[in-house]
Design a protein around this nucleic acid. Sequence first.
DNA 1: CTACAGCTATAACCGATAGCTATGGACGTC
DNA 2: GACGTCCATAGCTATCGGTTATAGCTGTAG
Lengths: 294, 294
Amino acid sequence: MDVHVRDLRYFAAVAEELSFTRAAERLHVSQPALSKQVRALERQLGHPLFERRARSVALTPQGAALLPAVRELIAGWTEAVRAARTAGPAESLAVGMQTAVGRDLQREVLGRFRERGWLISLRLVNWEDPTAGLAGGGVDAAFCWLPVPGVGAELTAKVLVREDRWVALPAGHRFAGRAEVDFAELLDEPFVALPRSAGPLREFWLGTAERGGREPVVGLEASSPEEVFEAVGAGLGVVLLAEGNARLYPRPDVVSVPVRGLAPCELALVWRADEGRRAVAEFAAAFREAPPAA
Amino acid sequence: MDVHVRDLRYFAAVAEELSFTRAAERLHVSQPALSKQVRALERQLGHPLFERRARSVALTPQGAALLPAVRELIAGWTEAVRAARTAGPAESLAVGMQTAVGRDLQREVLGRFRERGWLISLRLVNWEDPTAGLAGGGVDAAFCWLPVPGVGAELTAKVLVREDRWVALPAGHRFAGRAEVDFAELLDEPFVALPRSAGPLREFWLGTAERGGREPVVGLEASSPEEVFEAVGAGLGVVLLAEGNARLYPRPDVVSVPVRGLAPCELALVWRADEGRRAVAEFAAAFREAPPAA
DNA sequence: CTACAGCTATAACCGATAGCTATGGACGTC
DNA sequence: GACGTCCATAGCTATCGGTTATAGCTGTAG
């Protein structure tokens, strides 16, 4: 009875929300996709898991019987992954990053740990996962742009850099020559967005909070820096990015300009709050925290 | 860190066999498919699970750490599926079948149990799984053609019918008018075969044991009766089938003829040897066993 | 030392799957 | 009775898991 753990997560989410719509939101998938997958799971099991009634969804007896086992399986797998990783050679640490971090942040620290014989494996994860692998247990720590869902609860964050947000424009854009632009001027521009599964991060880089309720125009979605700059360079849209990243990715066909009227962005090192390994704590301690915002 | 339980089975199989080739055989998939899936799993985890050396495959420390957890997860899930099914209403039984069983075998018995208020859900499973869902815990009992892997060990079988094997031919075939043919005459015919994942069942219906080592010519593979008869009717090959099934599926473009020189085939009711539910025992007891072979 | 045999990895291809958007249909609510 | 909410269906596309064919490595036999 092979099953995809993803489908079990889906089932658990619906069981907890008792609503397909809300569960779909939580899972960052569309409601039909969720509906279909759950139906497929029911078909595979040979019995329904939910009773879909007028204004409510309820677990069937079979669903109720399955739920705890599903939770256990998911937790068990997550734990097993973590245990397997730490079974590797001596002091080894898996560190996730979403984009090139640069800024000489990690170079020195990583170098120092490598010299001491630690095995630091950097894992470039794409933007589908705003925790860069932390949530699923894939990494021990990650460089993330805030906001990261779970920080303050099961995750701890240490802000390393606080920067203004700039906008990347195609070289021929009418703002390309400006010394800076006001965010209000950009509201009608088509934006290049992160994938919807990136959750709050997508909203943050669309500047949703600063739009005063006006829907952003999403030109297209991109899930890697290359794709983003390709799209911007081709004139398909503009995109917000951190000042440091604007310098980190110089391209002839893209121009970056500071934006007024936006909260700054924060790059943080994130790790699990219940992390027990001394190595992780030591790694985190090796970074200097950015001074609090002005 | 979503994962497909199938991939965990694959990992466990390789870990047990310490050979991709043998594990692939055991899993009834091709060796490259297995290789690829395991590599993908390793990539997802971010560390290798096996050391591939000259003439041997060995678990890495991480692989060794993961193995017991994986075994446990698979066992736990299988058990959970079974528990969920039995959490359904009162006396309910999931029964698998691979083809229409017919022969008035189940009609009377199923009817009797239904009248007593039991909920018998028949599940038509395809030939990919020779245990018709028993192995994965998807059903409580199944009508299967022998041989079924596991019978005698974790599965118990009760032979219900023993029949001669016939051959289905396209209507225009040179043997179509015969009263019977000798299997030796069929050795060079292209055969319609079950999918390779059907395991020993595929061999049985190709008559491999009676070919004296000569490789069968497989015209094409089919995974449902409709496909098989479509293929035979179209002249793409011939196929062995049970005498009873030859009568069960009358088609104008297909002719069936008895075959000499083949062991008979056996249709059995199969259930788990460690089955604890009274309902299953009672269900099994309701069928008459076929007299032992002559 | 060359040829062969056994084993894993790669390539090219193909059908099934999981995702999306748009839309339909059922049922409370106002 | 119109509307809003929520789940299901339809139609489409990209990715994935499978296949066969073949390459590459390595120990063994002649």
